Simulated assay, not measured.
Amino acid sequence: MARVSQEHLDARRRQILDGATLCFSRNGFHATSMQDVLREVDLSAGAVYRYFSGKEELIAAIATEALAAIRGAFERAAEENPPPLPDVLLAQVLGDVLAGRVPGSGRPAAEGAPGFPRVALQVWAETLRTPELATALRHGFGEVHAAWSKVVVAYQEAGLMRNDVPADRVARTLMAVAQGFIAQQALFGDVEVEQLQDGLRGLMSMTEPKIK
């Protein structure tokens, strides 16, 4: 029997994750059954369950993969001297996510990535009732937070940002901006990345008033 290549296994796993993302985006996590996923990816139950034990494992994999991609984008940005400013950097990374590209690489990600905000919102809600998912998400967010903190330190070392504010707090605030943008996209669908970029640019232009 011919051995199945790792490339084939990776492609099959990608196919399942993309199909599950589409299903969850369309109908929600709880209204989607594994049968729906099987129909979407046109695979047998055995082929799918070889990779994932059920919906919980699927949604954990989707969340973990997205966080890893975003973390990688900010780690690469931290190596630049200096990194792109926050308005540019956040717009680039979130624009890639919404367009279905792996952030920072230009490579295609999931076909269902345009529905990522809806799935992200479901993942956040599901963490309130699934301890295993909450643990995985907490770990992923911790790694993203560390990567963003490196970017902030790079800003401070380049003299672009005041250094009397802890880098981890600035990073957490930037993460909150990104999460808020994703939530607005999921709920309303009419928020463009350019709006986020313009808003950040406006905030970054503020200066303390001169005392007369």
Results as ranks from 00 to 15, higher is better:
G142S: 05
A77L: 12
E40N: 02
R118S: 03
K210L: 15
A176F: 03
L22N: 02
E65A: 08
H30Y: 03
Y155T: 03
V165K: 09
Y155K: 04
I59Y: 03
A66E: 14
E192R: 12
G140E: 01
E75N: 09
V165M: 11
Q197M: 14
H139L: 10
A146D: 10
H8P: 10
M1D: 14
Q156C: 07
M1H: 13
S149Q: 05
D96E: 11
D164P: 04
T207F: 06
T127L: 00
A20Q: 00
E57R: 02
V151C: 06
A120N: 09
T64W: 00
K150M: 14
E143T: 05
V170E: 04
N163L: 09
Q179I: 11
P103R: 07
D168R: 07
A47T: 12
N27E: 10
M34R: 04
A178C: 12
A77K: 01
A183E: 08
A154N: 00
Q185P: 08
V119W: 01
N81W: 11
L89R: 02
L98P: 10
L187V: 11
S25I: 04
E194C: 08
A99L: 10
A91C: 10
C23S: 07
G72R: 05
D42L: 10
Q185S: 15
A91S: 15
Q185H: 11
E75F: 10
A113C: 13
H30N: 11
E194T: 12
L58A: 03
T130W: 00
D87Y: 08
E143F: 01
N81G: 12
Y49S: 04
D168H: 12
Q156W: 05
Q35H: 12
T135W: 04
L94T: 05
E132G: 00
G180W: 07
V93I: 12
L38F: 14
R101H: 13
P82R: 02
R12G: 09
T64L: 06
A110D: 14
E194G: 09
L85A: 15
T130E: 08
G202Y: 07
F74T: 10
A154G: 04
V153Y: 04
P209F: 02
Q122T: 01
V152P: 00
G95M: 11
A154S: 04
V119C: 01
A109P: 06
A158C: 08
R107M: 14
A125W: 01
P108T: 14
P108Q: 15
L128P: 05
A73D: 03
L67E: 06
R169M: 13
Q6P: 09
K212I: 13
A158Y: 05
V123P: 02
P131S: 00
W124I: 03
G95L: 11
L58H: 03
A63D: 02
R107Q: 15
E7Y: 09
L196P: 01
L98T: 11
R172K: 14
T127Q: 00
R169W: 13
